[in-house]
Amino acid sequence: MIRHIVLIKFQPDFPEEKIRELFAELLVIRSQVPGILGITSGRSESPEKIERGYMHGFVVDFEDWGALENYQNHPDHKALGAKLVANATGGLDGILVVDIPVEA
């Protein structure tokens, strides 16, 4: 399994309602791309409070690297990614992505 982790530092004036709408779009993609095992998204509620501005994020679990590649190439993912970049602080600099292989 591949765990795709995305952390986003949204612009300060970008409303929570719009963030929820973007994350809802992500859930629609799940039904369109085979190999997605699960999606979790939301705002950090960490008691450690060391998010450094990356207050929102999501995790997508994929069956394998091929499923992740299909997701990355899907037009709805590209459209959503463009919206995330447009509303992140500093554009792409306001987004962190990590892909971690997870052993069963």
Rank of each mutant, 00 (worst) to 15 (best):
A82G: 03
A67E: 00
Y54V: 06
G81V: 08
G57M: 03
Q11W: 07
I95G: 04
W65A: 14
T89K: 10
Q72R: 08
D64I: 00
T89L: 07
F23L: 08
H4Q: 02
S46C: 06
K78A: 09
G90N: 01
V6L: 11
T89S: 07
I29D: 05
L96T: 06
G66T: 13
H74I: 04
Q11A: 14
Q11E: 13
H56R: 04
I5M: 13
K78D: 09
M55L: 15
K83S: 04
L22M: 11
Q11S: 09
P15E: 03
I100T: 01
T40M: 13
V98I: 15
S44T: 12
K83G: 03
L68P: 05
P101H: 05
I19G: 05
E25H: 14
R43P: 07
L84I: 00
H74Y: 00
F58T: 03
I100V: 09
Q72N: 14
H74W: 04
I29N: 07
G94E: 05
H4P: 05
E16I: 08
G38E: 00
S31K: 10
D99W: 00
W65Q: 14
S44I: 07
I29G: 04
D99E: 04
D76N: 14
N70S: 11
K49V: 12
V97I: 06
P34M: 06
A82Y: 06
I36D: 04
A24S: 13
L68I: 08
I39L: 01
V33R: 02
V59S: 01
V98R: 13
L80P: 03
E45W: 11
E51F: 06
G57R: 04
